[in-house]
Design a protein around this nucleic acid. Structure first.
Lengths: 192, 192
DNA sequence: GCCCATTGAATGACCGTTCATTCAATATAA
DNA sequence: TTATATTGAATGAACGGTCATTCAATGGGC
């Protein structure tokens, strides 16, 4: 009976195909094929394509948050914490381009819309980024501009997302020094 | 025989449905229905769904660039020109949310990937934003950080895109003062 | 009466999902 | 130990539904 963990073969195949071709470019038959199983087998592990997609999202999100929290020190100055999180995030994206592409696909789809709505309505037991607290604190300490959280978020994240996409598309080579310069520039955008 | 310009009825219906539901949530039959024509009629004006989609993109891009260039004065200081373009762009997005959503759908799809590839390879006769020149000049005058054009682009555009999405989703109300504060913060990100 | 824009039912391709069937591995009986 | 029964993971052909596209029929304008 073939490979020991078909489940992760399936998840891996789904990640690769969906990241590269989008949800509609990833028929179950194709995922099954790449995973080396039959189409029906996927349904032994996942109730539906929908559930496979959401599960995969949760797995990636978990890994990302773990990477972010590693070495994160709550007692350091705001600026340093921001730089830490930013560089971590950008480095994670660069190291895991498929994860990034998958998350983009997810967010730019009905799944992402539902997620956002849930988060906004605070129905979310969803694991949150450490950012909101950091911004709130920074504003209170008058280190960060007094702008709505959503705006600060956009100023900090927007560039990372755009830039990661450019990196993956090969328009630029994001090495460590450039990542640090970029995150520093993001800080200039939000700092007072 | 019904309305004088079925073509623009079709384009309008396609814009609305695709912007709100994505390409796969916009069957030709549904577009036809909303436009008040039969499915077959669309093919009198557009060879295929593909071509309809690309044409619609070009129309929107044209309107956007026009809005950007309006009142744009090449002889003003770099900073003011940047603020002008930024606020114009953000205001255009806020005033035309369907256009913004459509462009997002387009960019996050195989169409967008093809477009980017084309632009990068400079095969493009495609109309360009006035940004590259502005950044180049700013760097030369030592007003803007000495970072690759792609990075500056991300620092300036990333926040606008993220924020527009949040505005459209209702997470924040982007009025004129807030738009100006935001663009000013973007400037802080790229200025020396 | 002729032309041509318009119509919408029909076509064929594609896709997610189902389920009857297979068969290697394991348990049970002798 | 050997023969037999049971299990359930895995399979993949088949189903039902959706969708872009086609084209023969229609009817309004000249």
């Amino acid at each position: 009976m073939a490979r020991p963990d078909k489940r992760s073969d399936i998840v891996g195949a789904a990640l690769q195909i969906i990241a590269e071709q989008g949800f509609h470019g990833a028929p179950m038959a194709m995922i099954a094929d790449k995973a080396g199983v039959a189409a029906g087998t996927i349904y032994c592990y996942f109730e539906s394509k929908d559930i496979l997609i959401k599960e995969l999202y949760r797995e990636i999100e978990g890994k990302m948050l773990e990477a972010l929290r590693e070495d994160y020190q709550t007692e350091r100055p705001i600026r340093e914490r921001f730089l830490h999180l930013g560089t971590r995030l950008l480095k994670y994206f660069v190291a895991h381009p498929l994860d990034f592409k998958y998350m983009e696909q997810f967010h730019n789809s009905p799944y992402g819309a539902a997620l956002r709505r849930g988060r906004f309505a605070k129905e979310s037991n969803v694991s949150h980024l450490p950012y909101p607290e950091l911004f709130e604190l920074g504003v209170a300490q008058q280190v960060i501009k007094d702008l709505p959280e959503v705006v600060l978020f956009a100023l900090a994240f927007g560039p990372m997302i755009t830039l990661t996409r450019d990196h993956i598309l090969g328009f630029i080579e994001l090495d460590d020094p450039l990542i640090e310069k970029t995150i520093a520039a993001c800080w200039d955008g939000i700092k007072r």
